[in-house]
């Protein structure tokens, strides 16, 4: 560029007439307003992005009549991602979601042809016993016990959103 550099700090024709303080005030204010605008706009965009109209997964699901299940037996109930176990005492349900990072655990043994030995997680090799207690692996705690109930028509319902005590059984 064949130019003669001019003073880069100045507007065209602008000399040192303007009080410095006023210019500083304007600039400071402008920057503050700009920051506020940016923050607000970012907040609005974030609110939009956080929106979801995706339906919630079911919190509970019916699993047929108690007499559909042999005693003892173990059945995976897909809708609530849980194992429905029937033992000599009654029914209970174990959350199949691993307490480590949420993979679905596999049953070892089906409780019918082979004894239910426990559960293992295919992701990072956590092991749980047949009662869902943690045995080994990175899982921080055992599997959750989910509430099992009978509805008015005599069907079993498993509630994902309600945890119970390991000794609780639904006696059918």
């Amino acid at each position: 560029m064949c130019a003669m550099p001019t003073n880069e700090n100045e507007w065209p024709g602008e000399e040192d007439v303007e009080p410095l303080s006023r210019r500083k005030l304007f600039t400071g204010l402008r920057k503050a307003l700009l920051a506020a605008t940016g923050a607000l706009a970012a907040g609005e965009a974030a609110q939009m992005m956080a929106h979801s109209s995706q339906p919630e997964p079911p919190e509970s699901a019916t699993a047929g009549k108690p007499e559909d299940y042999a005693a003892p037996s173990l059945t995976f109930v897909r809708d609530v991602r849980a194992y429905l176990v029937r033992d000599a005492l009654g029914f209970y349900a174990l959350d199949a979601v691993c307490s480590h990072l949420g993979c679905l655990v596999r049953a070892v043994g089906d409780g019918q042809n082979s004894p239910l030995l426990g559960f293992e997680c295919p992701c990072h090799n956590s092991h749980y016993d047949a009662q869902g207690e943690r045995i080994s692996g990175p899982a921080p705690r055992g599997l959750r016990y989910l509430a099992v109930e009978l509805d008015s028509t005599g069907n079993l319902i498993i509630h994902r959103d309600r945890e119970t005590h390991p000794d609780d059984r639904l006696i059918a």
Binding site: E44, A45, Q47, M48, A50, H51, S53
Partner: peptide, 9 residues
Amino acid sequence: YEAPYGWFV
């Protein structure tokens, strides 16, 4: 109508 500020965007 549903997403916040979606109308504005």
